[in-house]
Simulated scan of single mutants.
Amino acid sequence: MTSARLMLGNGLAKDLAADTARRSEDFHQRAGRRPCLATVLVGDDPASVTYVRMKQNRCRQAGIESRHVALPDTTSTEELVAALTALSEDPEVDGILLQHPVPAQIDERAAFEAIAAGKDVDGVTMHSFAAMAFGLPGYDSCTPGGIMRLLDHHGVDPAGRHAVVIGRSPILGKPVAMLLLARDATVTVCHSKTQDLPAIVRTADIVVAAVGRPEFVRGDWLKPGAVVVDAGYNEGNVGDVAFDEAMSRADLVTPVPGGVGPMTISVLLDQTVRAAFEHAGLG
């Protein structure tokens, strides 16, 4: 069987970043300030520190001001909520990103809900989820939003197709299911309690793997000609799908790295600039 084609995200992410930088400069010229993304990090988890630094660097490249709020790992829910509320009320801040996961003592959902809906450029609040579910204006969860752009870029129309999402996290599995449903796919969401998962996956025209287990989805689970989106990232640059096996069976496959990953920050910055225009009433 012919090897699958790759759904690469690097080129698309680069194009989106260039467009974001252009619109950021346009905003700067018209508003007299740069779009501003505030990042909030509780504690000093090495991976989270690296992610935040990466986002700050990408902000600079796109002409977006980056404001960072670092809080100790002893921070309480109330203290974090207060910090997020202050950023929500600051007219110079356009978007807010709370780096997750947060320490165990914090109610993460309460913290997310302290982010104003108009500044939730990471798409983590209940308001954003409702907007995704109902197809209303709002901000997508960044990785799901990136997945949809990747599908569009490669000419994959979800309408009428069966999409199986493996994973039900509030920032990936559930929102990508809502975005696919809004595009007229028939969506099945699978999880740790799903029985006979391989049989369900074999019925899928589109598979989104977001379970966080290396090479969990095997090639013989896949329907020949399926579109496979691997949204997992595990130690050793390994995704949630057995890549070589998928390549011999599917039609399109996202690699790890270089597939979904590059799209996430690009969508975040794109939505930050969009929020800046909306806050300034510049359209």
Score class of each variant (00 low, 15 high):
Ala4Lys: 06
Leu8Cys: 02
Leu8Gln: 14
Leu8Trp: 04
Ala13Met: 01
Asp15Asn: 11
Asp19His: 03
Asp19Pro: 05
Thr20Leu: 07
Arg23Ile: 11
Glu25His: 09
Ala38Tyr: 13
Val40Pro: 01
Leu41Tyr: 06
Leu41Asn: 06
Leu41Phe: 08
Thr50Gly: 01
Lys55Gln: 08
Gln56His: 11
Cys59Ala: 09
Ala62Tyr: 07
Gly63Lys: 09
Ser66Leu: 00
Asp73Asn: 10
Ser76Lys: 10
Leu80Phe: 05
Leu80Met: 09
Val81Arg: 07
Ala83Asp: 07
Ala86Lys: 12
Glu92Trp: 05
Ile96Arg: 08
Leu98Asn: 05
Pro101Ala: 01
Ala104Ile: 11
Gln105Arg: 04
Ile106Trp: 00
Asp107Gly: 00
Asp107Glu: 01
Arg109Gly: 11
Phe112Gly: 08
Ala116Glu: 08
Gly118Val: 01
Asp120Gln: 03
Val121Thr: 15
Thr125Trp: 04
Met126Thr: 15
His127Ala: 15
His127Lys: 08
Ser128Gly: 12
Ser128Glu: 07
Ser128Ile: 14
Phe134Glu: 09
Gly135His: 00
Leu136Ser: 10
Tyr139Val: 07
Tyr139Cys: 07
Tyr139Gln: 09
Tyr139Ile: 08
Ser141Asp: 05
Leu150Glu: 03
Leu150Gly: 06
Leu150Ser: 08
His153Met: 02
Pro158Leu: 10
Gly160Arg: 03
Ile171Asn: 12
Leu172Glu: 11
Gly173Pro: 04
Lys174Arg: 15
Ala185Leu: 06
Thr186Asp: 09
Val189Ser: 02
His191Val: 06
His191Ile: 12
Thr194Phe: 08
Ile200Ser: 01
Ala209Asp: 09
Pro214Lys: 13
Phe216Thr: 03
Leu222Arg: 10
Lys223Arg: 15
Pro224Arg: 10
Gly225Met: 09
Ala231Tyr: 05
Gly232Phe: 14
Tyr233Val: 15
Val238Phe: 00
Val241Arg: 04
Glu245Lys: 02
Ser248Lys: 03
Pro255Arg: 00
Val256Ile: 14
Pro262Ala: 05
Val267Asn: 03
Gln271Ala: 03
Arg274Leu: 07
Phe277His: 13
Glu278Leu: 09
Gly283Trp: 12
